[in-house]
Nucleic acid binder design. Structure first.
Length: 437
RNA sequence: GGCCCCAUCGUCUAGCCUGGUCCAGGACGUGAGCUUUUCAAGCUCAAAACCCGGGUUCGAAUCCCGGUGGGGUCACCA
Protein backbone atom coordinates (compact mmCIF):
# COMPACT_ATOMS: atom_id res chain seq x y z
CA UNK A 1 0.00 0.00 0.00
CA UNK A 2 2.84 2.32 0.88
CA UNK A 3 4.29 1.93 -2.58
CA UNK A 4 1.09 2.47 -4.48
CA UNK A 5 1.67 4.45 -7.60
CA UNK A 6 -0.46 7.55 -7.92
CA UNK A 7 -0.56 9.76 -10.98
CA UNK A 8 -2.74 12.70 -11.72
CA UNK A 9 -4.26 14.54 -14.62
CA UNK A 10 -4.71 18.18 -13.73
CA UNK A 11 -6.41 20.20 -16.44
CA UNK A 12 -7.63 23.73 -15.97
CA UNK A 13 -11.19 24.25 -17.21
CA UNK A 14 -10.37 27.18 -19.45
CA UNK A 15 -11.15 25.47 -22.72
CA UNK A 16 -12.34 22.21 -24.17
CA UNK A 17 -10.15 19.13 -23.88
CA UNK A 18 -7.81 18.97 -26.85
CA UNK A 19 -5.69 16.09 -28.08
CA UNK A 20 -2.55 17.37 -26.38
CA UNK A 21 -4.10 17.35 -22.94
CA UNK A 22 -6.04 14.18 -23.66
CA UNK A 23 -2.79 12.45 -24.50
CA UNK A 24 -1.31 13.56 -21.18
CA UNK A 25 -4.34 12.10 -19.43
CA UNK A 26 -3.88 8.91 -21.42
CA UNK A 27 -0.25 8.45 -20.41
CA UNK A 28 -1.14 9.00 -16.77
CA UNK A 29 -4.01 6.57 -17.09
CA UNK A 30 -2.06 3.83 -18.84
CA UNK A 31 0.86 4.03 -16.46
CA UNK A 32 -1.23 3.98 -13.31
CA UNK A 33 -3.41 1.16 -14.59
CA UNK A 34 -0.44 -0.94 -15.54
CA UNK A 35 1.14 -0.47 -12.14
CA UNK A 36 -2.07 -1.21 -10.32
CA UNK A 37 -2.08 2.32 -9.04
CA UNK A 38 -4.57 5.05 -9.62
CA UNK A 39 -4.97 8.28 -11.49
CA UNK A 40 -6.44 11.29 -9.79
CA UNK A 41 -8.40 13.82 -11.79
CA UNK A 42 -7.89 17.30 -10.42
CA UNK A 43 -9.61 20.32 -11.89
CA UNK A 44 -7.25 23.26 -11.53
CA UNK A 45 -9.70 26.09 -11.29
CA UNK A 46 -7.85 28.55 -9.10
CA UNK A 47 -8.28 31.17 -11.80
CA UNK A 48 -11.90 32.05 -11.17
CA UNK A 49 -11.94 34.47 -14.05
CA UNK A 50 -11.13 32.02 -16.79
CA UNK A 51 -12.47 28.79 -15.37
CA UNK A 52 -15.85 27.75 -16.71
CA UNK A 53 -18.17 25.01 -15.58
CA UNK A 54 -19.00 24.12 -19.18
CA UNK A 55 -15.34 23.35 -19.85
CA UNK A 56 -15.18 21.12 -16.82
CA UNK A 57 -18.19 19.29 -18.20
CA UNK A 58 -16.47 18.98 -21.57
CA UNK A 59 -13.36 17.54 -19.95
CA UNK A 60 -15.34 15.01 -17.95
CA UNK A 61 -17.41 14.00 -20.95
CA UNK A 62 -14.30 13.62 -23.10
CA UNK A 63 -12.51 11.40 -20.62
CA UNK A 64 -15.60 9.31 -20.18
CA UNK A 65 -15.96 8.79 -23.91
CA UNK A 66 -12.31 7.82 -24.21
CA UNK A 67 -12.67 5.37 -21.36
CA UNK A 68 -10.07 7.12 -19.24
CA UNK A 69 -11.33 6.47 -15.76
CA UNK A 70 -10.26 8.12 -12.53
CA UNK A 71 -11.12 6.82 -9.10
CA UNK A 72 -10.59 10.15 -7.40
CA UNK A 73 -11.81 13.61 -8.31
CA UNK A 74 -10.98 17.03 -6.86
CA UNK A 75 -11.50 20.69 -7.58
CA UNK A 76 -8.93 23.14 -6.35
CA UNK A 77 -11.64 25.70 -5.79
CA UNK A 78 -12.96 23.47 -3.02
CA UNK A 79 -9.68 23.15 -1.17
CA UNK A 80 -9.17 26.64 0.10
CA UNK A 81 -8.63 25.72 3.77
CA UNK A 82 -5.82 23.37 2.87
CA UNK A 83 -4.03 26.06 0.94
CA UNK A 84 -4.63 28.61 3.70
CA UNK A 85 -2.99 26.30 6.18
CA UNK A 86 0.10 25.89 4.04
CA UNK A 87 0.37 29.54 3.15
CA UNK A 88 0.24 30.45 6.81
CA UNK A 89 2.93 27.89 7.62
CA UNK A 90 5.12 29.08 4.80
CA UNK A 91 4.95 32.65 6.11
CA UNK A 92 5.44 31.54 9.69
CA UNK A 93 8.57 29.59 8.76
CA UNK A 94 9.99 32.43 6.74
CA UNK A 95 9.70 30.65 3.41
CA UNK A 96 7.27 33.24 2.16
CA UNK A 97 6.33 36.80 2.93
CA UNK A 98 3.74 39.40 2.10
CA UNK A 99 5.28 41.83 -0.34
CA UNK A 100 4.46 45.50 -0.41
CA UNK A 101 2.25 44.97 -3.44
CA UNK A 102 0.25 42.85 -0.99
CA UNK A 103 0.77 39.56 -2.73
CA UNK A 104 2.61 36.61 -1.22
CA UNK A 105 6.05 35.90 -2.54
CA UNK A 106 8.24 32.87 -2.07
CA UNK A 107 11.55 33.51 -0.34
CA UNK A 108 13.88 32.11 -2.95
CA UNK A 109 16.92 30.36 -1.41
CA UNK A 110 18.65 30.98 -4.75
CA UNK A 111 20.20 27.62 -5.31
CA UNK A 112 20.82 25.19 -8.09
CA UNK A 113 18.18 22.52 -8.42
CA UNK A 114 19.04 19.25 -10.07
CA UNK A 115 16.24 16.86 -10.73
CA UNK A 116 15.80 13.68 -12.69
CA UNK A 117 13.35 13.41 -15.48
CA UNK A 118 12.63 9.80 -16.33
CA UNK A 119 12.72 10.45 -20.06
CA UNK A 120 15.37 13.17 -20.25
CA UNK A 121 17.75 12.34 -17.48
CA UNK A 122 19.21 14.89 -15.07
CA UNK A 123 18.29 18.50 -15.56
CA UNK A 124 20.11 21.26 -13.74
CA UNK A 125 18.66 24.70 -13.26
CA UNK A 126 19.78 27.78 -11.37
CA UNK A 127 16.72 29.15 -9.59
CA UNK A 128 18.34 32.49 -8.85
CA UNK A 129 16.86 33.89 -12.03
CA UNK A 130 13.39 33.18 -10.65
CA UNK A 131 13.77 35.75 -7.87
CA UNK A 132 11.14 35.84 -5.16
CA UNK A 133 8.25 34.70 -7.30
CA UNK A 134 4.60 35.18 -6.41
CA UNK A 135 2.90 32.09 -5.05
CA UNK A 136 -0.44 33.46 -3.87
CA UNK A 137 -2.73 36.41 -4.42
CA UNK A 138 -3.37 36.60 -0.69
CA UNK A 139 -3.46 34.37 2.43
CA UNK A 140 -6.07 32.05 1.00
CA UNK A 141 -5.76 32.37 -2.74
CA UNK A 142 -2.87 30.28 -4.13
CA UNK A 143 -1.48 30.56 -7.63
CA UNK A 144 -0.80 27.60 -9.87
CA UNK A 145 2.65 26.56 -8.64
CA UNK A 146 1.70 26.57 -4.99
CA UNK A 147 -1.61 24.79 -5.47
CA UNK A 148 0.00 22.12 -7.60
CA UNK A 149 2.73 21.36 -5.10
CA UNK A 150 0.37 21.30 -2.14
CA UNK A 151 -2.10 19.06 -3.92
CA UNK A 152 0.44 16.63 -5.26
CA UNK A 153 1.76 16.37 -1.73
CA UNK A 154 -1.60 16.01 -0.01
CA UNK A 155 -2.77 13.51 -2.60
CA UNK A 156 0.40 11.44 -2.35
CA UNK A 157 1.16 11.71 -6.03
CA UNK A 158 4.20 9.60 -6.84
CA UNK A 159 4.63 10.21 -10.58
CA UNK A 160 4.04 13.48 -12.36
CA UNK A 161 3.45 12.85 -16.03
CA UNK A 162 2.86 16.08 -17.90
CA UNK A 163 3.76 17.99 -21.04
CA UNK A 164 7.29 19.10 -21.80
CA UNK A 165 6.21 22.72 -21.45
CA UNK A 166 6.34 22.11 -17.71
CA UNK A 167 10.01 21.23 -17.39
CA UNK A 168 10.94 24.84 -16.75
CA UNK A 169 8.23 25.00 -14.09
CA UNK A 170 9.68 22.07 -12.24
CA UNK A 171 12.56 23.79 -10.42
CA UNK A 172 10.34 26.35 -8.73
CA UNK A 173 7.86 23.67 -7.77
CA UNK A 174 10.68 21.69 -6.22
CA UNK A 175 11.68 24.78 -4.26
CA UNK A 176 8.17 25.02 -2.84
CA UNK A 177 8.14 21.29 -2.14
CA UNK A 178 11.27 21.58 -0.07
CA UNK A 179 9.83 24.52 1.82
CA UNK A 180 6.68 22.69 2.84
CA UNK A 181 8.58 19.48 3.52
CA UNK A 182 7.05 17.44 0.76
CA UNK A 183 8.84 14.48 -0.80
CA UNK A 184 9.88 14.86 -4.39
CA UNK A 185 7.80 12.84 -6.84
CA UNK A 186 9.23 11.32 -10.02
CA UNK A 187 9.00 13.48 -13.10
CA UNK A 188 8.11 12.32 -16.57
CA UNK A 189 7.83 15.08 -19.13
CA UNK A 190 6.35 13.95 -22.39
CA UNK A 191 7.07 15.62 -25.75
CA UNK A 192 4.63 18.11 -27.19
CA UNK A 193 2.30 17.50 -30.09
CA UNK A 194 3.20 19.74 -33.02
CA UNK A 195 1.27 20.99 -36.02
CA UNK A 196 2.52 20.10 -39.53
CA UNK A 197 4.65 23.25 -39.62
CA UNK A 198 6.29 22.13 -36.37
CA UNK A 199 4.82 24.91 -34.29
CA UNK A 200 2.76 24.23 -31.24
CA UNK A 201 -0.48 22.57 -32.23
CA UNK A 202 -3.28 25.07 -32.49
CA UNK A 203 -6.92 25.03 -33.46
CA UNK A 204 -6.34 26.28 -36.96
CA UNK A 205 -4.11 23.29 -37.53
CA UNK A 206 -6.76 20.85 -36.52
CA UNK A 207 -6.18 20.57 -32.80
CA UNK A 208 -9.72 19.58 -32.37
CA UNK A 209 -11.37 18.93 -29.11
CA UNK A 210 -11.82 15.31 -28.20
CA UNK A 211 -15.56 15.66 -28.50
CA UNK A 212 -15.22 16.94 -32.05
CA UNK A 213 -13.57 13.69 -33.00
CA UNK A 214 -16.52 11.92 -31.54
CA UNK A 215 -18.82 14.09 -33.62
CA UNK A 216 -16.85 13.27 -36.75
CA UNK A 217 -17.30 9.60 -36.10
CA UNK A 218 -13.94 8.46 -34.83
CA UNK A 219 -13.82 5.50 -32.50
CA UNK A 220 -12.53 6.34 -29.02
CA UNK A 221 -10.10 3.41 -29.02
CA UNK A 222 -8.71 4.64 -32.36
CA UNK A 223 -8.10 8.13 -31.01
CA UNK A 224 -6.39 6.58 -28.01
CA UNK A 225 -4.29 4.31 -30.18
CA UNK A 226 -3.28 7.27 -32.31
CA UNK A 227 -2.49 9.54 -29.40
CA UNK A 228 -0.31 7.00 -27.65
CA UNK A 229 1.80 6.62 -30.78
CA UNK A 230 2.53 10.34 -30.71
CA UNK A 231 5.61 10.40 -28.55
CA UNK A 232 5.67 6.78 -27.55
CA UNK A 233 6.46 3.54 -29.33
CA UNK A 234 6.18 -0.06 -28.23
CA UNK A 235 9.35 -1.99 -27.42
CA UNK A 236 8.53 -4.39 -30.14
CA UNK A 237 10.91 -7.08 -31.04
CA UNK A 238 8.79 -9.90 -32.26
CA UNK A 239 6.37 -7.89 -34.35
CA UNK A 240 5.79 -4.39 -35.61
CA UNK A 241 2.18 -4.12 -34.62
CA UNK A 242 0.88 -0.61 -34.15
CA UNK A 243 -2.78 -1.31 -33.67
CA UNK A 244 -3.68 -1.76 -30.03
CA UNK A 245 -6.81 -1.92 -27.99
CA UNK A 246 -6.75 0.19 -24.85
CA UNK A 247 -6.53 -3.00 -22.81
CA UNK A 248 -3.41 -4.07 -24.70
CA UNK A 249 -1.94 -0.62 -24.28
CA UNK A 250 -2.20 -0.92 -20.52
CA UNK A 251 0.00 -3.99 -20.78
CA UNK A 252 2.60 -2.80 -23.25
CA UNK A 253 2.97 0.82 -22.20
CA UNK A 254 6.35 1.78 -20.81
CA UNK A 255 8.19 4.92 -19.75
CA UNK A 256 11.21 3.69 -21.69
CA UNK A 257 9.29 3.95 -24.92
CA UNK A 258 8.58 7.63 -24.50
CA UNK A 259 10.13 9.90 -27.09
CA UNK A 260 12.19 12.99 -26.32
CA UNK A 261 11.27 15.17 -29.27
CA UNK A 262 7.96 16.63 -30.33
CA UNK A 263 5.64 14.72 -32.62
CA UNK A 264 3.73 16.16 -35.54
CA UNK A 265 0.05 15.44 -35.58
CA UNK A 266 -0.73 13.40 -38.69
CA UNK A 267 -4.42 13.17 -39.50
CA UNK A 268 -3.87 10.56 -42.22
CA UNK A 269 -2.43 8.14 -39.74
CA UNK A 270 -5.32 8.76 -37.37
CA UNK A 271 -7.74 7.89 -40.17
CA UNK A 272 -5.86 4.73 -41.00
CA UNK A 273 -5.85 3.66 -37.38
CA UNK A 274 -9.53 4.39 -37.17
CA UNK A 275 -10.17 2.13 -40.16
CA UNK A 276 -8.17 -0.62 -38.53
CA UNK A 277 -10.28 -0.34 -35.42
CA UNK A 278 -13.49 -0.30 -37.42
CA UNK A 279 -12.42 -3.59 -38.99
CA UNK A 280 -11.94 -5.08 -35.58
CA UNK A 281 -15.36 -4.10 -34.29
CA UNK A 282 -17.89 -6.78 -33.48
CA UNK A 283 -21.00 -6.68 -35.63
CA UNK A 284 -23.11 -5.43 -32.74
CA UNK A 285 -20.72 -2.67 -31.76
CA UNK A 286 -20.28 -1.62 -35.40
CA UNK A 287 -24.01 -1.28 -35.83
CA UNK A 288 -24.40 0.67 -32.62
CA UNK A 289 -21.61 3.07 -33.50
CA UNK A 290 -22.54 3.60 -37.13
CA UNK A 291 -26.29 4.06 -36.79
CA UNK A 292 -26.21 7.71 -35.66
CA UNK A 293 -24.33 8.52 -38.86
CA UNK A 294 -26.67 6.74 -41.26
CA UNK A 295 -28.96 8.83 -43.45
CA UNK A 296 -32.65 8.96 -42.72
CA UNK A 297 -33.52 6.69 -45.60
CA UNK A 298 -31.59 3.87 -44.03
CA UNK A 299 -33.96 3.81 -41.11
CA UNK A 300 -36.73 2.40 -43.24
CA UNK A 301 -34.66 -0.51 -44.43
CA UNK A 302 -35.15 -4.07 -43.36
CA UNK A 303 -32.69 -5.50 -40.90
CA UNK A 304 -31.02 -7.57 -43.62
CA UNK A 305 -30.73 -4.70 -46.09
CA UNK A 306 -29.34 -2.42 -43.47
CA UNK A 307 -26.69 -4.94 -42.47
CA UNK A 308 -25.68 -5.30 -46.11
CA UNK A 309 -25.53 -1.54 -46.54
CA UNK A 310 -23.37 -1.15 -43.46
CA UNK A 311 -20.99 -3.76 -44.81
CA UNK A 312 -20.60 -1.78 -48.03
CA UNK A 313 -20.22 1.51 -46.22
CA UNK A 314 -17.57 0.34 -43.81
CA UNK A 315 -15.17 -0.49 -46.57
CA UNK A 316 -15.58 2.91 -48.19
CA UNK A 317 -14.93 5.12 -45.18
CA UNK A 318 -12.21 6.04 -42.73
CA UNK A 319 -14.56 7.63 -40.25
CA UNK A 320 -18.29 7.24 -39.79
CA UNK A 321 -18.71 10.92 -40.56
CA UNK A 322 -17.54 10.22 -44.12
CA UNK A 323 -20.95 8.70 -44.77
CA UNK A 324 -22.36 12.20 -44.79
CA UNK A 325 -20.05 13.17 -47.64
CA UNK A 326 -20.97 10.08 -49.62
CA UNK A 327 -24.62 10.86 -49.12
CA UNK A 328 -24.29 14.51 -50.10
CA UNK A 329 -22.38 13.52 -53.22
CA UNK A 330 -25.29 11.30 -54.22
CA UNK A 331 -23.23 8.16 -53.92
CA UNK A 332 -25.84 6.37 -51.89
CA UNK A 333 -29.08 7.43 -53.51
CA UNK A 334 -29.46 4.30 -55.60
CA UNK A 335 -29.77 2.21 -52.48
CA UNK A 336 -33.26 3.56 -51.93
CA UNK A 337 -34.27 5.04 -55.24
CA UNK A 338 -34.60 3.67 -58.74
CA UNK A 339 -31.78 5.51 -60.50
CA UNK A 340 -32.44 7.44 -63.67
CA UNK A 341 -29.98 6.75 -66.50
CA UNK A 342 -29.66 6.51 -70.25
CA UNK A 343 -29.91 3.05 -71.72
CA UNK A 344 -26.56 3.22 -73.47
CA UNK A 345 -24.98 3.23 -70.07
CA UNK A 346 -25.89 -0.45 -69.87
CA UNK A 347 -23.31 -1.20 -72.56
CA UNK A 348 -19.99 -2.45 -71.35
CA UNK A 349 -16.82 -0.93 -72.80
CA UNK A 350 -17.06 -0.89 -76.62
CA UNK A 351 -20.07 -3.12 -76.96
CA UNK A 352 -22.90 -1.70 -79.06
CA UNK A 353 -25.70 -4.23 -79.22
CA UNK A 354 -28.40 -3.48 -76.69
CA UNK A 355 -30.52 -6.41 -77.76
CA UNK A 356 -27.82 -8.73 -76.45
CA UNK A 357 -27.85 -6.85 -73.17
CA UNK A 358 -31.57 -7.38 -72.99
CA UNK A 359 -30.98 -11.11 -73.35
CA UNK A 360 -28.46 -11.04 -70.50
CA UNK A 361 -30.90 -9.19 -68.29
CA UNK A 362 -33.62 -11.71 -68.98
CA UNK A 363 -31.34 -14.57 -68.14
CA UNK A 364 -30.18 -12.80 -64.98
CA UNK A 365 -33.79 -12.38 -63.94
CA UNK A 366 -34.61 -15.99 -64.47
CA UNK A 367 -31.55 -17.08 -62.51
CA UNK A 368 -32.23 -14.72 -59.63
CA UNK A 369 -35.92 -15.52 -59.43
CA UNK A 370 -34.83 -18.98 -58.37
CA UNK A 371 -32.88 -17.71 -55.39
CA UNK A 372 -35.00 -17.68 -52.27
CA UNK A 373 -35.92 -14.33 -50.85
CA UNK A 374 -34.25 -15.10 -47.56
CA UNK A 375 -31.08 -16.43 -49.16
CA UNK A 376 -30.74 -13.37 -51.32
CA UNK A 377 -27.25 -12.52 -50.14
CA UNK A 378 -24.32 -11.16 -52.08
CA UNK A 379 -22.68 -14.55 -51.85
CA UNK A 380 -25.69 -16.48 -53.13
CA UNK A 381 -26.38 -14.02 -55.89
CA UNK A 382 -22.80 -14.27 -57.02
CA UNK A 383 -22.88 -18.05 -56.92
CA UNK A 384 -26.05 -18.10 -58.97
CA UNK A 385 -24.85 -15.69 -61.60
CA UNK A 386 -21.17 -16.51 -61.83
CA UNK A 387 -21.28 -19.45 -64.17
CA UNK A 388 -23.48 -17.72 -66.68
CA UNK A 389 -21.45 -14.52 -66.51
CA UNK A 390 -18.22 -16.40 -67.04
CA UNK A 391 -19.69 -18.19 -70.00
CA UNK A 392 -20.93 -15.03 -71.71
CA UNK A 393 -18.07 -12.83 -70.64
CA UNK A 394 -18.11 -11.41 -67.13
CA UNK A 395 -17.89 -7.78 -68.13
CA UNK A 396 -20.63 -8.15 -70.69
CA UNK A 397 -23.07 -9.53 -68.14
CA UNK A 398 -21.92 -8.03 -64.88
CA UNK A 399 -21.58 -4.46 -66.11
CA UNK A 400 -25.22 -4.14 -67.20
CA UNK A 401 -26.26 -6.01 -64.08
CA UNK A 402 -24.49 -3.49 -61.90
CA UNK A 403 -25.52 -0.54 -64.00
CA UNK A 404 -29.16 -1.55 -63.93
CA UNK A 405 -29.02 -1.55 -60.14
CA UNK A 406 -26.96 1.58 -59.55
CA UNK A 407 -27.22 3.67 -62.70
CA UNK A 408 -23.60 4.63 -62.07
CA UNK A 409 -20.28 4.21 -63.83
CA UNK A 410 -18.70 3.59 -60.46
CA UNK A 411 -20.31 1.80 -57.57
CA UNK A 412 -20.06 -1.26 -55.40
CA UNK A 413 -20.35 -4.61 -57.14
CA UNK A 414 -23.79 -5.82 -58.22
CA UNK A 415 -23.89 -8.68 -55.72
CA UNK A 416 -23.49 -6.43 -52.72
CA UNK A 417 -26.01 -3.95 -54.08
CA UNK A 418 -28.47 -6.73 -54.80
CA UNK A 419 -28.30 -7.86 -51.20
CA UNK A 420 -29.11 -4.36 -50.00
CA UNK A 421 -31.98 -3.99 -52.45
CA UNK A 422 -33.41 -7.41 -51.79
CA UNK A 423 -34.82 -9.85 -54.30
CA UNK A 424 -37.95 -7.96 -55.23
CA UNK A 425 -36.29 -4.61 -55.89
CA UNK A 426 -33.37 -6.20 -57.70
CA UNK A 427 -35.71 -7.94 -60.13
CA UNK A 428 -37.72 -4.78 -60.51
CA UNK A 429 -34.66 -2.81 -61.55
CA UNK A 430 -33.57 -5.45 -64.02
CA UNK A 431 -37.05 -5.35 -65.49
CA UNK A 432 -36.86 -1.56 -65.63
CA UNK A 433 -33.62 -1.79 -67.58
CA UNK A 434 -35.17 -4.25 -70.02
CA UNK A 435 -38.11 -1.98 -70.64
CA UNK A 436 -35.78 0.93 -71.22
CA UNK A 437 -34.12 -0.97 -74.01
C1' G B 1 17.50 37.70 -25.88
C1' G B 2 18.49 34.51 -20.93
C1' C B 3 17.60 29.63 -19.30
C1' C B 4 15.99 24.51 -20.39
C1' C B 5 15.07 20.56 -23.88
C1' C B 6 15.55 18.19 -28.57
C1' A B 7 17.69 16.56 -33.66
C1' U B 8 17.01 9.03 -38.24
C1' C B 9 12.66 8.71 -44.77
C1' G B 10 7.40 14.23 -46.08
C1' U B 11 5.16 12.29 -41.10
C1' C B 12 5.17 8.67 -36.67
C1' U B 13 9.26 5.75 -35.36
C1' A B 14 13.19 1.07 -34.59
C1' G B 15 18.36 1.12 -33.93
C1' C B 16 21.94 4.84 -30.08
C1' C B 17 22.87 3.20 -23.37
C1' U B 18 26.36 -2.14 -24.20
C1' G B 19 30.48 1.19 -31.63
C1' G B 20 31.03 -3.57 -36.42
C1' U B 21 25.47 -8.16 -37.89
C1' C B 22 22.62 -0.83 -40.62
C1' C B 23 25.05 0.57 -48.31
C1' A B 24 19.75 1.93 -41.59
C1' G B 25 14.17 -1.79 -40.23
C1' G B 26 8.63 -0.98 -39.62
C1' A B 27 4.11 2.11 -40.20
C1' C B 28 1.18 6.31 -42.51
C1' G B 29 1.15 8.87 -46.93
C1' U B 30 2.91 8.75 -52.19
C1' G B 31 3.96 5.95 -57.00
C1' A B 32 3.60 1.38 -59.82
C1' G B 33 1.77 -3.47 -60.53
C1' C B 34 -1.53 -7.59 -59.38
C1' U B 35 -6.63 -8.94 -58.55
C1' U B 36 -11.05 -7.37 -60.89
C1' U B 37 -17.52 -5.92 -64.38
C1' U B 38 -16.54 -0.29 -62.37
C1' C B 39 -15.29 2.01 -57.65
C1' A B 40 -13.49 0.88 -53.00
C1' A B 41 -10.96 -2.76 -50.38
C1' G B 42 -7.01 -6.32 -50.48
C1' C B 43 -2.09 -8.11 -51.96
C1' U B 44 3.01 -7.19 -53.99
C1' C B 45 6.85 -4.00 -55.23
C1' A B 46 9.26 0.87 -55.41
C1' A B 47 11.06 5.82 -54.26
C1' A B 48 12.22 8.15 -49.65
C1' A B 49 16.33 9.57 -43.78
C1' C B 50 21.21 9.02 -39.97
C1' C B 51 21.28 18.25 -39.61
C1' C B 52 26.54 20.13 -40.48
C1' G B 53 31.77 20.15 -39.02
C1' G B 54 35.64 18.30 -36.21
C1' G B 55 37.53 14.49 -32.86
C1' U B 56 38.12 9.34 -30.61
C1' U B 57 38.54 4.48 -33.03
C1' C B 58 40.86 -0.49 -37.37
C1' G B 59 35.56 0.89 -37.60
C1' A B 60 30.41 5.88 -35.58
C1' A B 61 23.51 6.67 -36.92
C1' U B 62 25.64 4.96 -32.34
C1' C B 63 30.88 7.94 -27.97
C1' C B 64 33.07 13.34 -27.26
C1' C B 65 33.33 18.64 -28.68
C1' G B 66 31.60 22.75 -31.57
C1' G B 67 28.14 24.81 -34.83
C1' U B 68 23.33 25.09 -36.99
C1' G B 69 18.27 24.24 -36.74
C1' G B 70 13.68 23.38 -34.09
C1' G B 71 10.74 23.53 -29.69
C1' G B 72 9.58 25.07 -24.68
C1' U B 73 9.75 28.76 -20.92
C1' C B 74 10.60 33.48 -18.79
C1' A B 75 2.44 36.47 -15.56
C1' C B 76 -0.99 38.51 -9.15
C1' C B 77 -2.59 32.10 -16.41
C1' A B 78 -2.44 27.20 -15.77
Amino acid sequence: MKNKIITRFAPSPTGTLHVGAARTALFNFLFSKQKNGEMILRIEDTDRERSKKEYETDILESLKWLGITHPAFFRQSERKEIYQKHIAALIRNGHAYVAEDSVIRFKNPNKKIIFTDLVRGDIIFDTTELHDFVIARNESDPLYHLAVVIDDYEMNVTHIIRGEDHVSNTPRQILIQEAIGAPRPLYIHIPLILSPDRSKLSKRHGAMSVLEYRKEGYLPEALINFMVLLGWSPQHGKDNNEVFSTEELINVFSIEGIQKSGAVFNIDKLKWINREHIKRLSRERLHDEIKPFLPLEAQNMSEASLAALIAILTEKIDVFGDIRGLYDAGELTYFWEQPAYEKKGLLWKNETDLSVVKKYLSELMSILSQVGEKEFTALRVKEGVWEYATEMGRGSVLWPFRFALSGKEKSSDPFAIAEVLGKEETLRRLEHAKKLI
